[in-house]
């Protein structure tokens, strides 16, 4: 497990350090830069959507899916505030509140 974590460190650190070490003088080919620009939104969406719509291995698009429902106000708040803190508290707060009221 510790070895896996060291592996995680290596693959996290390399993409973080390579550009500042080697890119200051010469840049990347424009096509690579354009492709890399698609990586942050796509990887985050590929992680987020399954977390919202899949429950216990099954597609759940109904009203009883609290994760999906809370995702809508969280998304709106994130859009308006462009912060990490406010949508985080909104999402977690709504989920906690809904459970307090016996939902999901």
């Amino acid at each position: 497990m510790a070895l896996t974590i060291v592996g995680m460190m290596v693959v996290t650190f390399l993409p973080r350090v390579m550009p500042v070490w080697f890119l200051s003088s010469r840049g990347l080919p424009p096509l690579v830069v354009a492709w890399l620009r698609f990586v942050p939104p796509t990887v985050l969406a590929a992680l987020t959507l399954p977390a919202l719509v899949i429950q216990e291995g099954k597609l759940a698009l109904g009203w009883n899916n609290l994760y999906l429902l809370a995702g809508i106000p969280t998304l709106l708040v994130a859009w308006r505030t462009r912060s990490l803190f406010v949508p985080l508290l909104t999402g977690m707060g709504l989920v906690a509140l809904a459970r307090l009221l016996g939902w999901g």
Partner: peptide
């Protein structure tokens, strides 16, 4: 999930990137 939503919104700069993100989400599911 809430942090991913917030980070995703911060990373989506235009319509094409939003569409690509949606496609990635659907593919992943």
């Amino acid at each position: 999930p809430a942090m991913f939503i917030a980070l995703l919104v911060m990373q989506v700069k235009d319509r094409l990137h939003a569409l690509a993100a949606l496609a990635a989400g659907v593919f992943s599911v």
